[in-house]
């Protein structure tokens, strides 16, 4: 990330495999960490806010690995890395790694619901990143002020295609996660359910508006950023509330 920033400032950035390799290496370490943690807990490591943020950062890296090379949006790595660093940095710095009191019983529906929802969040995060890239590129084209980054960003239509596919992918996973949430066998607070459905409705509205050509690509890009911010706030709320409500 620092290397890309320095190269962009020096107007010497050459898109290459470095971003992909750097994120790939980080992904391997993240996977190792989550695996060790999962073995220690005897279940999917999603028992507190710390693990949720690490898992989310892992999901973003996973979706980037799957989607980035397909669309050849090489600079997407430079935009993805800050988000991964932010999520993981917050998880490591904030005092949120509170061990869950008592051993949590294994609940495969709950683990499936949580993990698939977080991978959906990863797709929404990348759609948000592609949205930021779209808005940056669009602004330069509108104002006729082309900076060094202009030459490295992908074409608008490619970015919009990436946004659309990431949104559909994330939406399908999120729907799966939402439906599986009703099978966890535990009563869920109605506020959480309402907020989760609210996020689903928001993304459904974005996709519907895009599909029926009611929203321009610029608006869809902006809504991706708003949607992910809302989804992240909801995730925080759900996990925080769950920790507060857990028995001492």
């Amino acid at each position: 990330m620092a290397r890309t920033g320095a190269l962009l400032r020096a107007k010497k950035f050459q898109p290459g495999r470095f971003n992909f390799l750097a994120i790939g290496l980080g992904f391997i370490f993240q996977t190792a960490f989550l695996s060790i943690r999962g073995h220690a807990l005897g279940r999917c490591p999603l028992t507190n806010l710390f693990e949720v943020f690490i898992f989310l950062a892992w999901s973003v890296a996973l979706i980037y690995m799957l989607v980035g090379p397909v669309y050849r949006l090489s600079l997407m790595g430079a935009f993805t890395a800050p988000l991964v660093v932010l999520l993981q940095g917050f998880a490591l710095i904030a005092p949120i790694d509170q061990p869950h009191p008592g051993k949590l019983p294994a609940n495969s529906w709950l683990e499936f619901h949580a993990s698939i929802s977080l991978i959906a969040y990863g797709a929404f995060a990348l759609a948000c990143i592609a949205g930021v890239m779209y808005l940056v590129q669009e602004r330069q084209l509108k104002t006729h002020h082309l900076h060094s980054i202009f030459y490295h960003l992908p074409p608008l239509t490619d970015l919009f295609a990436a946004i659309t596919r990431l949104l559909w992918f994330g939406f399908a996973l999120y729907t799966l996660g939402l439906v599986s949430g009703f099978f966890v066998g535990q009563p869920l607070p109605w506020v959480q359910v309402a907020c989760a459905i609210g996020v689903w409705v928001l993304y459904a509205a974005i996709l519907q508006g895009q599909h029926w050509r009611r929203f321009s690509p610029k608006r869809v890009a902006a809504l991706c950023i708003i949607g992910f911010s809302a989804a992240l706030t909801l995730l925080w709320g759900i996990t925080f509330t769950a920790q507060m409500q857990s028995p001492p």
Partner: peptide, 24 residues
């Protein structure tokens, strides 16, 4: 190692470069 070949320097090629940055 330098940006000596960066960007188009004629009106026609600038227009075509911009078109590619919009449509791919």
């Amino acid at each position: 190692h330098t940006d000596i070949t960066r960007g188009a320097v004629s009106v026609g090629s600038v227009a075509v470069d911009l078109a590619e940055k919009i449509f791919g």
